[in-house]
């Protein structure tokens, strides 16, 4: 499998805090990679470094073999890196359609007509097609999460970073959402990197998992390998009651 995105020795410090302390990670084409780790492990910082919202103090980010460490976020989006935020950051006084059209127009570089077609297609995939003309503010919170996800999918990214898509969801919903993510990732040929809460329930949907702790990748492997790893159980899963 070819490497689509490579994070190479990335470090990011905030004052004395080592948010990322030399992370090297290969992300393969069309895989669904889960990133797990306790709060403050550096997961969000890693996403920010990959999307360009933060510049690393050390290390490089390579996308399809090209060094994009210095590229601004909008260029990376146009190259095909999309992101869904943990807390949906939508334009609440605009319609569901307009929210998603934006990412198609600019990230996906489509024209307005194609953007609208594409958005309807994706809204159907996530089951929001009937709400296309609804104001984003009028959606329920799970619907807002789905729109945040749909907006990122709509621009036809090659790599999609999902920030805690199942956070705060009831356990039964976790299976539905993760199934949906998997189905769309395969159908649309998108490489997905997902940070997940509800680890035990969610990680099994991934092809591979990575355990991040104190800014370092401590364990890497298949979901079951990672979940059964002694270290992961000790420093992370020991605290979780599911």
């Amino acid at each position: 499998m070819s490497v689509v995105l490579r994070v190479e020795g990335v470090a990011k410090y905030f004052g004395g805090i080592k948010a990322l302390d030399g992370v090297t990670l290969d992300i393969h084409e069309n895989e669904l990679l889960a990133i797990i780790g306790p709060n403050g492990a550096g997961k969000t910082t890693l996403f920010n470094v990959i999307t360009g919202l933060r510049k690393p103090d050390r290390g490089r980010v390579l996308y399809m073999g090209r060094d994009i460490t210095r590229a601004p976020p909008y260029k990376r989006a146009q190259m095909g890196i999309a992101r869904a935020f943990q807390i949906p950051r939508l334009i609440y006084n605009a319609s569901v359609m307009d929210n998603a059209v934006l990412s198609c127009l600019f990230g996906g570089k489509m024209d307005l007509n194609n953007s609208k077609k594409r958005v309807l297609e994706v809204l159907k995939l996530v089951g929001l097609e009937k709400k296309a003309n609804e104001l984003a503010a009028n959606l329920t919170s799970p619907e807002k999460k789905l729109l945040e996800f749909a907006r990122a999918v709509a621009m036809k990214p090659r790599v999609l970073l999902l920030d805690e898509i199942v956070a705060g969801m009831p356990p039964a919903e976790v299976d539905n959402i993760m199934n949906l993510v998997r189905k769309i990732a395969i159908g649309e040929k998108i490489t997905v990197v997902a940070m997940v809460e509800h680890v035990i329930r969610a990680v099994k949907y991934a092809d591979r998992a990575v355990f991040l702790h104190q800014g370092r990748i401590l364990v890497e492997g298949s979901p079951s390998e990672v979940l059964n790893n002694k270290l992961v159980k000790e420093v992370y899963l020991g605290e979780i009651i599911e």
Partner: peptide, 13 residues
């Protein structure tokens, strides 16, 4: 509305 989000979706703010 949100410069960071716009930036993340391909808009040069």
């Amino acid at each position: 509305e949100d410069e960071e989000v716009a930036n993340s979706f391909g808009i040069n703010p």
